[in-house]
Design a protein around this nucleic acid. Structure first.
Length: 549
RNA sequence: GCGCCCGUAGCUCAAUUGGAUAGAGCACUGGACUACGAAUCCAGAGGUUGCAGGUUCGAGUCCUGCCGGGCGCGCCA
């Protein structure tokens, strides 16, 4: 964490020698160009205005203090007032051994300070199998959760199940109607019902389990169908997620929220605050007082609560009863209009809306034979996640989904994804890991004992290894930045970059040289550290790091 | 009409959150295996960051206005 060290050092210089009590935000970054140093800072430029001094002079003065530290090889002051810093080889050597000692824990940070974070994601309605859009949300949420835990947050992963309400009823009725159809009855299948083929499967199962289904009273039969559908679909969803290496700590039932009376209780709280009123037989929440465009219905005139009512109760529990410091909701971008009312509800309940961070994930567009396909669960038109996993595999799918910022729409060309397995960047990164594994096997075969603690680094100059050493050092910074900006895709780019540096090194340098065991061991040390970084990085994305491939 | 997101190389996307000469992969052209894995490497070509203004030491990034695309605007979830 040399970057943090630089920042701490500059902070203390500013306190001591510039008598600044509060330090404004400035950058300590890895410059794009090598000739601008290993790290660079714009601190002098930021301070120029405040101190009313020439930034170049400020930079020179700060640089002089920095030069006293052993870990820096060289410090330069350039043009408008950038300070460019080169790190000493001794520092990197020291770090190499630390990486090996930390192993699985290398990259772990404490910036989360143990804050309790609830990451809620997928939460797809249990009205049909997961499609690839859900897959993106699943990969993202899961990876983000891993990342935050690694960064020192206490993370809980949760799936909110909408197991009640209108859509569930429609699901039950869809199954019921299909069951009738299967028994030879002619039915009018409404357009707003679920048309997927899986409904027939569930209907068949219903008829099998309840042979007298159709002779029962209609509402009772529909209720039976609903429960069965919920059970089967939820099991299917859980199964897909498990296969996709996505595991939840909690499956949070909306229905149980009602059974515990939370919804009623929260509405009562809102009523006492005067934000609830009745109009046209419905119960309304005055969300427009809190930034929403208009007021929203909580209980419809037919007595049914809306989804929103349950969601308010759910979030109330999250922040009040369950005491989470941060709630991160990962929603499809089509739900963006929902954010304002949700935050409005939090404000009304005296909960800081900043505690809730909603990440909107853009759509996955399906391109099949050059044509865009609409994806609707209701119409039964979608590519299922399991189908994609069958054809492409878990690792590539996760890797592709995590390669983009949530803000950007993914154009998913199904044919290309199926065909492209060999050229997928995931193999590029995994290959680097497998190569290292095979190196160690080779070394063992040749009788080279790798004992990190005993390796002598004094006579090895690391000239060829510098690029790798610098890249290794970056890992923790990447974790920090990814966690701060909630951007797992940054890890993706780092890993591809890292693999590239490693492949280049591997091609250029003969690592195992039986005639020079000392140098061989020094090089193997760098390889071991690289292996650790690749493995830890891939694991944050939920992608495997194979020994062989 | 209003709101959110996007517009960067032929295609798919990055860009350290306002930093220095905008980078990768795919595709294309040419090269590298009698040595640890060629699922690799090296080199080349490819750009007025949608357009026009503005803010400042400095803009792909922030502000305003256009243009184009996606999504949403229910007593559905």
């Amino acid at each position: 964490m040399i970057r943090k060290k630089i920042r701490d050092l500059i902070d203390s210089i500013l306190h001591e020698h510039f008598s600044l009590t509060e330090v404004p935000f400035y950058e300590v970054e890895k410059p794009r160009k090598e000739n601008f140093g290993d790290y660079a800072t714009n601190v002098a430029l930021v301070l120029a205005g405040r101190l009313k001094k020439n930034p170049f002079e400020i930079a020179k003065s700060i640089a002089n203090f920095l030069r006293e530290d052993q870990d820096f090889e060289k410090i330069e002051v350039v043009k408008p007032g950038f300070i460019n810093i080169w790190i000493s080889l001794d520092y990197y050597k020291k770090r190499l051994k630390e990486i090996l000692e930390l192993d699985k824990n290398f990259g772990k940070l404490t910036i989360g300070k143990g804050k309790k974070v609830l990451v809620e994601f997928v939460s797809a309605n249990p009205t049909g199998p997961l499609h690839i859009g859900h897959g993106r949300g699943a990969a993202f949420g899961d990876s983000l959760a891993r990342l935050l835990a690694f960064a020192g947050y206490e993370v809980v992963k949760e799936y909110y199940i909408n197991d009640r309400g209108t859509q569930m009823y429609i699901l039950g009725n869809s199954v019921y109607l299909r069951a009738k159809e299967l028994s030879g009855e002619k039915v009018d299948f409404p357009d707003d019902h679920y048309k997927g083929a899986y409904i027939y499967d569930i209907a068949r199962e219903a008829l099998k389990r309840y042979p007298d289904l159709l002779s029962r009273e209609e509402q009772e039969a529909i209720a039976i169908c609903k429960e069965l559908a919920l059970e089967i679909i939820l099991a299917d969803i859980k199964n897909d997620l498990k296969r996709f290496r996505v595991f939840f700590d909690n499956w949070y039932s909306e229905r149980k929220l009602y059974e515990r009376g939370v919804v009623e209780a929260v509405i009562k709280v809102l009523k006492e605050k005067g934000y609830i009123y009745e109009k046209e037989g419905a119960l309304w929440f005055a969300s427009s007082k809190f930034g929403d465009e208009k007021d929203r219905v909580l209980r419809r005139s037919n007595g049914e609560y809306t989804y929103f009512a349950g969601d308010i109760a759910y979030h109330y529990e999250k922040f009040v009863e369950r005491d989470f410091d941060i709630g991160i909701n990962i929603w499809g971008a089509d739900h963006h209009g929902y954010v304002k009312r949700m935050k409005g509800a939090l404000k009304a309940l005296n909960i800081d809306p900043e505690k809730l961070q909603v990440i909107l994930i853009q759509m996955v567009n399906l391109l099949e034979k050059g044509e865009k396909k609409s994806m609707s669960t209701r119409a039964g038109e979608f590519v299922e996640l399991k189908e994609l996993l069958n054809e492409v595999g878990v690792d590539p799918v996760r890797f592709i989904f995590l390669s983009r910022s949530p803000d950007s729409t993914i154009e998913f060309d199904v044919e290309l994804a199926k065909k492209q397995t060999q050229e997928n960047p995931v193999y590029y990164v995994q290959y680097a890991h497998a190569r290292i594994c095979s190196l160690f096997q080779k070394a063992e075969e040749k009788g080279i004992k790798f004992e990190p603690g005993k390796i002598q680094l004094k006579n090895f100059d690391f000239a060829q290894e510098m690029k790798l050493l610098k890249k290794l050092e970056e890992f923790e910074d990447v974790i920090e930045d990814s966690a701060r900006t909630l951007s797992p895709h940054r890890i993706y780019y780092y890993l591809v970059d890292f693999a590239s540096v490693f492949h280049e090194y591997y091609t250029k340098i003969r690592i195992i040289d039986e005639n020079d065991k000392n140098s061989t061991l020094a090089r193997l040390l760098v390889c071991k550290a690289s292996q650790i970084v690749l493995k830890n990085g891939l694991s944050l994305l939920g992608v495997s790091a194979p020994q062989k491939m």
